[in-house]
Computed example of a mutant assay.
Amino acid sequence: MVIITDDFDNIEWDQFVLDHPHGNIFQTSYMSKVYEKTNKYEPVRLVAKDEGSGELLALVQGSVISEMLGIFSSFSSRSVLQGAPLFVDSVSGMEAVRALMVHYNKLVGKKIVYTQIRNMWDTGDCSEILTNLGYKYDEHLDFLIDLNRPEEEIWSDIQKSRRKGINRAERNGIVVRSVENKEELDLCYNLVLETYKRFKIPIADISLFEAVYDDLSITDHADFFIAFKNEEVVGTRITLNYKDVVYDWYAGSRQGVDYVDEALVWYILKINAGKYKVFDFGGAGHPDKPYGVREFKRRFGGEMVNYGRYERVHSSLKESISQIAFKAYKQFL
């Protein structure tokens, strides 16, 4: 029999994530601590164990994100499960993940509008379980770049037009280095904020970035990069690093400054060549919908994958109200 609980040991939790073939930074206790420090974020963590042996069979961690607080919280809240759930490859594991997600739905259903599961691998082995529990699958692309090779090989796979952009960035005086202090972190956040506002996308509070900088950069689980041109800050990129993977997390650049994004991405690829195995370039949108970011990423020569996403709406009424509210919210971005 499987028991579901939120009472667990972080050491056991992190060991399970570390040993799991799909274990990722978003399912570690480190990220849970980050979410606890972030305004309008709340971690959700559950494990499924065998009642007899006590063996950990499955776990899930997500963050409940609220755009508004107070009585309007449940109308503006969503839960994001990235790289989850994780479970052992066995009949018991499949039973455990089913029980885990049933419990999860009951736990968060009244608090949020919807849950989004952002896949980081092919989840065909649990797709039937998730769809039977009300999760709708949709296609979503990503690019993965092989880092486990010399810098010269990575460079040769980048398309000629993108290599020209990288070279022009250098000639134009764009310099990339690591962020050195909290003052530079503030400058980076402002660039991300500026970029997201330009595309009318909500952005997390700065406390998320501060928590990652304070807790994860000192353990090499995060890197913050900043780009200058003529001593002016013109770009930033932030990665999360775990096991063999560098994950492209957030980015921002000054509008009208050419080739800064190319310079930042190449710098990250170059310094991580041979150090990690994969650069996960992050989302590239739905394959049937135009998305300029996808074309930018494609030209760096990675493998395009379609792991997709799952989404479950927990309340149709709340969803309708939240869509109206979001349209109004975007007018102020």
Rank of each mutant, 00 (worst) to 15 (best):
Met1Thr: 11
Ile3Val: 10
Ile4Ala: 11
Ile11Tyr: 15
Ile11Asn: 15
Ile11Glu: 15
Phe16Asp: 06
His20Gln: 08
Ser29Ala: 09
Met31Lys: 09
Ser32Gly: 14
Asn39Asp: 14
Pro43Phe: 03
Val44Asn: 00
Arg45Trp: 04
Leu46Lys: 02
Val47Lys: 10
Glu51Met: 07
Gly54Tyr: 08
Gly54Leu: 13
Leu56Arg: 07
Leu57His: 00
Ile65Leu: 08
Ser66Glu: 08
Glu67Asp: 08
Glu67Tyr: 08
Ser73Thr: 15
Phe75Glu: 04
Phe75Tyr: 13
Ser77Thr: 10
Arg78Val: 11
Arg78His: 05
Leu81Thr: 01
Gln82Asn: 08
Gly83Phe: 09
Ala84Cys: 13
Leu86Ala: 14
Ser92Cys: 09
Glu95Tyr: 09
Val102Cys: 14
Val102Phe: 11
Val102Ala: 12
Asn105Gly: 04
Leu107Gly: 02
Gly109Ala: 06
Ile112His: 04
Gln116Cys: 05
Ile117Cys: 09
Arg118Glu: 15
Arg118Tyr: 13
Trp121Leu: 06
Trp121Gln: 06
Thr123Phe: 09
Asp125Gln: 13
Glu128Cys: 05
Glu128Val: 13
Leu130Trp: 11
Leu130Met: 14
Asn132Trp: 05
Leu133Pro: 06
Gly134Glu: 06
Lys136Pro: 01
Glu139Pro: 00
Leu141Lys: 08
Leu147Lys: 05
Leu147Ala: 07
Arg149Glu: 04
Glu151Trp: 00
Glu152Asn: 07
Ile154Gly: 05
Trp155Glu: 03
Trp155Ile: 03
Ile158Ser: 07
Gln159Phe: 10
Lys160Ala: 09
Arg163Met: 07
Lys164Val: 11
Ile166Leu: 11
Arg168Cys: 07
Ala169Phe: 12
Asn172Ser: 15
Gly173Ile: 12
Gly173Thr: 10
Ser178Thr: 08
Asn181Asp: 15
Lys182Val: 09
Glu183His: 06
Asn190Val: 04
Leu191Met: 06
Leu191Ser: 00
Val192Cys: 04
Thr195Leu: 12
Phe199Ser: 02
Ile203Lys: 01
Ile203Tyr: 03
Leu208Gln: 12
Leu208Asn: 05
Tyr213Ser: 01
Asp215Ser: 10
Leu216Asp: 10
Asp220Gly: 05
His221Ser: 02
His221Met: 11
Ala222Phe: 01
Phe224Tyr: 12
Phe224Val: 00
Phe224Asn: 05
Phe225Arg: 00
Phe225Cys: 02
Ala227Asn: 00
Phe228Arg: 00
Thr236Lys: 01
Thr236His: 02
Arg237Lys: 09
Thr239Ile: 08
Asn241Ala: 06
Asn241Glu: 12
Tyr242Pro: 12
Lys243Trp: 03
Tyr247Lys: 01
Ala251Asp: 10
Ala251Tyr: 01
Arg254Glu: 07
Arg254Ala: 14
Arg254Asn: 12
Asp258Asn: 15
Val260Lys: 07
Glu262Gln: 12
Ala263Leu: 08
Leu264His: 04
Tyr267Trp: 05
Ile268Tyr: 04
Lys270Gln: 11
Phe279Asp: 09
Asp280Pro: 12
Asp280Ser: 11
Phe281Glu: 10
Phe281Pro: 04
Pro287Asp: 12
Asp288Arg: 10
Pro290Ser: 09
Tyr291Glu: 14
Tyr291Leu: 15
Glu295Pro: 00
Phe296Asn: 08
Phe300Asp: 03
Phe300Trp: 04
Gly301Tyr: 07
Gly301Ala: 03
Glu303His: 02
His314Thr: 00
Ser315His: 02
Lys318Met: 03
Lys318Pro: 12
Lys318Thr: 03
Phe326Cys: 04
Lys327Arg: 13
Ala328Arg: 12
Tyr329Cys: 01
